[in-house]
Design a protein around this nucleic acid. Structure first.
Length: 351
DNA sequence: AAAACGGCCAACCGCTGTCGC
DNA sequence: AGCGACAGCGGTTGGCCGTTT
């Protein structure tokens, strides 16, 4: 089932796009929509293959892309989702509206992965590399439970992804004009929104609203995710983790409880879409553990002694969490996680 | 001042899944 | 069923740019 590489044709340009090329592509898509990517370059007067045009559009030119630093909440979402989904960047991107899978992938590889590694956490398994914290049998058992939860949650997200695909299929016949009403990166949000919040992206008004938000992001340098006080009115605000049935749980670890407070504000009032899709509530303990774990990582990013460079901490300010002793928190946190798991009911549906 | 180095990211490559013929 | 076209995905790379020596 082979197919010839689309970019092997002679005369087709490769490499960085020029502003003129961008302008041509933008102008053409704005007027005609992209339709067939293969036919587009010739029609738009571009010496590029269709694939290159598509990538340029989806990763850079699309109007609903948020660029710039990742907010703390976005980082948190990426880490959480990566723990559950692995390198499934597109799936992760569906929970981060306005971010492309490519951008998330790059950010993971250049920032978050290193941060995890420096904490002694395997960026693949999201478990501590050393056995310092997981040295005894009961703790190993706990790790297995965590893994089990991750698998469970992964399966749940698989089902969400199916919803997304089905939703896309339903709208497949729609024209580009219709697509403009639904930001592509908000695929999950929009599909789930069809279940819960039919007003989310059903109209051009939705698009306009999105554009306004987007402009705001460009103007102030950060997205609406940045402030815990931001008004979250629809699933477009992403951080779909909120939709994982986030916790009433208050953990024993300080970091966990801290992020819980923040998270309650941050995520309140949206994200029930997934809960509808997945009726069974996820075990709150698992979520809370993830919360605290992530929080430690994020806190750590601001620690000059652990951070790659000072500039990496830029996007993590303003959460109001004391950071002086989060190394201790880190240790205590993992212990508390394990305590939690060990003390959780053995007949939990999760296990 | 400039060479060396490393981080970052846009873009490419190659593979897979899906659809239509 | 087989094939080709296509979109989408994840891994990789090349080059720019800032920092260090």
């Amino acid at each position: 089932m082979g197919r010839s590489p689309c970019c092997d044709k002679v005369g087709l340009k490769k490499g960085p796009w020029t502003p003129e090329e961008d302008q041509k592509l933008l102008a053409y898509i704005e007027e005609h929509g992209h339709g067939s990517w293969r036919a587009l370059p010739a029609k738009a007067g571009l010496q590029r293959c269709g694939k290159s045009c598509r990538l340029r559009w989806t990763n850079y030119l699309r109007p609903d892309i948020k660029r710039g630093k990742f907010s703390m909440q976005e980082e948190q979402t990426i880490i959480q989702l990566h723990a559950l989904l692995g390198n499934r960047w597109s799936a992760i991107a569906t929970h981060l509206p306005k971010r492309t899978d490519n951008e998330i992938k790059n950010y993971w590889n250049t920032h978050l992965k290193k941060r995890l590694a420096k904490l002694g956490i395997d960026p693949i398994t999201h478990k501590p590399k050393s056995d310092a914290l997981l040295s005894i049998d009961s703790q190993s058992k706990s790790a297995a439970k965590l893994s089990h939860m991750a698998q469970w949650e992964s399966a749940r997200l698989e089902a969400e992804a199916r919803l997304v695909r089905e939703s896309k299929l339903r709208s497949h016949s729609h024209s580009f004009q219709h697509r403009l009403t639904r930001p592509p990166t908000a695929a999950f949000a929009s599909s789930a929104g069809e279940l819960v919040n039919k007003t989310a992206w059903n109209s051009t008004a939705g698009w306009s609203k999105s554009s306004e938000v987007n402009n705001g992001v460009v103007n102030n340098g950060f997205g609406d995710l940045e402030s815990p006080k931001s008004t979250l009115t629809s699933s477009e605000n992403g951080v779909g983790l909120s939709s994982m049935g986030m916790p009433d749980f208050v953990g024993t670890a300080s970091a966990s409880s801290q992020i819980k407070q923040e998270g309650e504000q941050e995520w309140k009032g949206f994200g029930s879409s997934t809960n509808l899709a997945m009726e069974n509530g996820f075990n709150d303990i698992g979520n809370a553990m993830e919360d605290g774990f992530i929080n430690l990582l994020l806190n750590d990013s601001t620690d000059p002694s652990l951070s790659d460079s000072g500039k990496e901490s830029d996007g993590n300010s303003g959460d109001g969490i004391a950071r002086d002793d989060h190394y201790e928190d880190n240790k205590n946190y993992w212990n508390s996680i394990l305590d939690l798991v060990n003390s959780s009911p053995s007949d939990s549906p999760m296990f």
